[in-house]
């Protein structure tokens, strides 16, 4: 950024440019420039979404009504999926918040040789596909996996029978994958806390726990809220991890959409589940945007 700012960006020949005064034309022309991308977004994103909603009210025999909704909502697989989705997302988010807070705290305030490398690794994980974690977990926690084999060698038996196919494994995998999403905004927030504030707090007699509770946590709330709600949103929508672990009993809403839409080609049913899922995450997203616009933290730190 600085490199671009320091060089003169207007080193072109201004005299050769035809002098045109466009300032007076006002907002109407300038608003027109937004139209092409907006039309594309409408055509390829909003229009399909609208069709999904419409399709959910049309059954396979082209009858319009609430029949598909009634069928899907009454099916036990839907209730299970909804409950699993919410349960896994909430537990994963809580785990990410706890683990992410601890890791960010240590990286920021108890740094060690190599902590920069650790931050780099964390940044890299952000760009990885999530299914990678699930694949690794099959080697680690599978019945014939490394953990069981190691425990067996140590004479501890095989402690992880069935763990891979339990919701807990999905939760652990999502914590692994999404913890960086909590850490990024936290690290940014902690970087803004002057070290003197912690020093002075200690000199006033506060131990580490009191400093964390009374000096650092209040600074971290906005970042925790922003990172936490984004993580909740992403874990609600997570698909790759659940798909790759492939536990038969752990079905979530995105898995149900996939099963109905791409496996059994029940488009109307898939659309009903999709509408529920979108409604759920949109509600959350609105909350997230609200938190974000109030604090200004989070998104910029996550994306840029």
């Amino acid at each position: 950024m600085t490199a671009t700012l320091t060089e003169p960006p207007i080193a072109t020949k201004p005299t050769s440019a035809p002098v045109r005064e466009r300032r007076g034309r006002g907002g109407a022309t300038r608003a027109l420039w937004v139209l092409p991308p907006l039309v594309l977004a409408a055509g390829f994103f909003l229009y399909p979404l609208a069709l999904v909603v419409k399709q959910s009210f049309v059954d396979k025999n082209e009858n319009v009504g609430l029949d598909v909704w009634r069928d899907v909502l009454n099916s036990p697989s839907f209730g299970d999926a909804l409950w699993n989705t919410v349960k896994i997302a909430v537990l994963s988010t809580l785990g990410c918040l706890v683990v992410g807070f601890f890791l960010a705290l240590v990286l920021s305030f108890v740094p060690f040789p190599g902590s920069r490398a650790v931050s780099r690794i964390v940044d890299t994980v952000l760009a990885f596909p999530s299914f990678l974690i699930a694949l690794a977990f099959t080697f680690l926690y599978g019945t014939a996996g490394v953990v069981n084999a190691a425990a067996d060698k140590l004479g501890l038996g095989e402690p992880l029978v069935g763990f891979l196919y339990s919701p807990w494994c999905v939760v652990l995998a999502e914590i692994t994958f999404y913890t960086p999403f909590v850490m990024r905004p936290l690290l940014a927030a902690f970087a803004l806390v002057p070290r003197e504030r912690l020093d002075v707090a200690a000199s006033l007699g506060a131990g580490p726990l009191r400093v964390i509770r009374q000096v650092l946590l209040p600074e971290a709330w906005p970042a925790l809220a922003a990172g936490g709600s984004l993580t909740l949103l992403l874990t609600l929508n997570e698909f790759g991890i659940v798909l790759f672990i492939g536990a038969k009993d752990v079905t979530t809403l995105p898995m149900l959409v996939h099963a109905k839409g791409a496996v059994t080609f029940d488009y109307p049913g898939a659309c009903v589940v999709a509408v529920v899922e979108v409604a759920l995450s949109l509600t959350l997203y609105t909350v997230y945007r609200f938190v974000f616009s109030r604090t200004g933290a989070g998104r910029a730190g996550l994306v840029a």
Binding site: P194, E196, R197, D199, V200, A202, S203, L204, G205, A206, G207
Partner: peptide, 14 residues
């Protein structure tokens, strides 16, 4: 520092 009982004032107030 939390066991020393010293009063500290720094440049940026903290």
């Amino acid at each position: 520092p939390n066991k020393r009982g010293i009063g500290v004032v720094v440049q940026n107030y903290a």
